[in-house]
Design a protein around this nucleic acid. Structure first.
Lengths: 194, 194
DNA sequence: CTACGATAGGGAACGTTGTTCCGTTTCGCA
DNA sequence: TGCGAAACGGAACAACGTTCCCTATCGTAG
């Protein structure tokens, strides 16, 4: 309790450890851009100039590393939800804009959408993080749009988020597949005839 | 050209080879049901009581084995397209019914949808087979529905098929995710206001 | 019925992955 | 300046798809 933090022990890590953690995050981000989020752990370690064990010391599993790399952007996306709802004309428009934000995030990260919905255990924490953080935001937008009578009221936020995420799989590096268009169709399909 | 077949050599395979090919197909089908299409090759070999090399002799890659196992069902789906178009009231209804057929096929095969859209090379032939066989059928249905003014005319069949396939990923073994519903929304999103 | 050559098979071996282990190095404090 | 804990590196392990090579089997010609 001596530090102003969250009350946990927080035994300040050694300087080299903190330095390596930062180096690893940078290296991972760089490798993810060029080789996708499923890049071999060894590649990331090599890029950072450390051993593979160092990665696992800082990040219990690959999923945690991915979370750490993209945490800021996920948080930004989550926070954009209420802001859009407050600043845009209709809740449906806000929903559409927010979904676009999410899609833009996903399609610009090679393979992230794919790994996000892999049933491979070990990505469970990644899965859970994204869903825990974003589903409530989506649910809020859905409720508002349903309350205003713009969309049907039986749409489950979790289901929609997974659907949108799925639609983004393989959207990178293939010009014939435009995930944004399909997601727009999907969102349009939620509308009620007025 | 001496035989009445397709004109290729077709030097009748040895009896044990034909027997093993059949055994392998049965074993693969059984393992796919219990462990999904990404089951280890060794498991399939063990189930069939053969060595792994035997699999690769008959099927150059895992993808070819998967194709062989599901070929009949894919063909049936492809052939159902024109039939639906002829027998159902509106082209849009036929499209919906046909997409439902495709979705039913995908969601009942553990992991098939996932592997179908994996960017992993080696599944390219699987990818190509499904698309080559089904996209033209889908395109035909889309054209008919667009011609009758029921849906927008700028929907690409390849894109739609990939989108639908993607929506089916992870649809098995998760009761909270109903791919059929989402696909229905997507198809509904193609409608033109009349 | 037998022997032989081509065909097919089995399983060990290879290369690549994620992950863990352990001996060594480095840091931070007294 | 020395020492214990923390962190490190890379070898080691396990699981996977795939290939290789030697052996067993099949089908046929004599």
């Amino acid at each position: 309790m001596t530090d102003g933090g969250a009350g946990r022990a927080a035994p300040r890590k050694r300087a080299d450890a903190r330095r390596n953690e930062r180096t690893l995050l940078d290296a991972a981000a760089a490798v993810f851009v060029t080789s996708g989020v499923e890049a071999p752990v060894r590649d990331i370690a090599a890029r950072a100039g450390v051993g593979v064990a160092t990665i696992y010391r800082h990040f219990p599993t690959r999923a945690d590393l991915i979370i750490a790399v993209y945490r800021h952007q996920v948080e930004a996306c989550a926070e954009a939800g209420p802001a859009l709802l407050a600043g845009v004309a209709s809740p449906y428009a806000a929903l559409g804009r927010w979904i676009n934000l999410f899609v833009d995030f996903l399609v610009t990260k090679h393979g992230l959408a794919a790994v996000l919905h892999s049933d491979d255990a070990g990505f469970d924490t990644l899965h859970a993080y994204f869903l825990d953080r974003l589903v409530p935001v989506c649910a809020h937008l859905l409720e508002a749009a349903a309350a205003s009578g713009e969309i049907r009221s039986d749409v489950d936020a979790l289901e929609l988020m997974r659907g949108v995420g799925n639609l983004c799989i393989g959207a990178d590096n293939d010009p014939r597949y435009d995930a944004r268009r399909l997601v727009d169709f999907l969102i349009a399909g939620l509308r009620l005839p007025h």
